[in-house]
C-alpha cells in the first residue's frame, strides 16, 4: 500500500509545508520506506486485543487547581519572530 505523490502533497499541505518537485519526489520515497517499515506490525495478529490508550499502566494523574506565576511577558515574547511588546504578531489572518 504505497503512498502516492498526491497523498504526500496533501499531508504537506496539512502540515503547512511547501515542497519543491524534487523534495516531493524525495519525501514520497522516504515516507514510503518508513510506512513499509511500520507495516511489519501488520504481521502480528491483533484479534481480540483491546486498543492501547497509553503505553504506561498509569491512570488519573492530576494536579491541584492552584495558580503559579506565569512567565514575564517580556520572556514569553522574546523568541517570537515578531511582537509589539504586548502581542505576538503574525501575518494577517482573514476570517
Amino acid at each position: 500500500m504505497a503512498l502516492t505523490k498526491e497523498e504526500v502533497e496533501k499531508v504537506a499541505l496539512l502540515a503547512r509545508l511547501r515542497l519543491s518537485p524534487d523534495e516531493l519526489e524525495l519525501m514520497t520515497t522516504q515516507l514510503n520506506k518508513i510506512v513499509e517499515y511500520v507495516e511489519q506490525l501488520r504481521e502480528v495478529d491483533t484479534t481480540d486485543v483491546e486498543p492501547l490508550a497509553h503505553p504506561l499502566p498509569v491512570t488519573n494523574v492530576f494536579r491541584r487547581d492552584e495558580v503559579r506565576p506565569s512567565l514575564p511577558r517580556e520572556e514569553a515574547l522574546r523568541n517570537a519572530p515578531d511582537h509589539d511588546d504586548e502581542f505576538f504578531l503574525v501575518p494577517p489572518v482573514l476570517e
Binding site: 514569553a76 515578531d82 509589539d84 504586548e86 502581542f87 505576538f88 504578531l89 501575518p91 494577517p92 489572518v93
Partner: peptide
C-alpha cells in the same frame, strides 16, 4: 491596517 494580526495566548 490589516498588516499584522495580534495573538493573545
Amino acid at each position: 491596517g490589516g498588516k499584522r494580526s495580534q495573538v493573545d495566548l
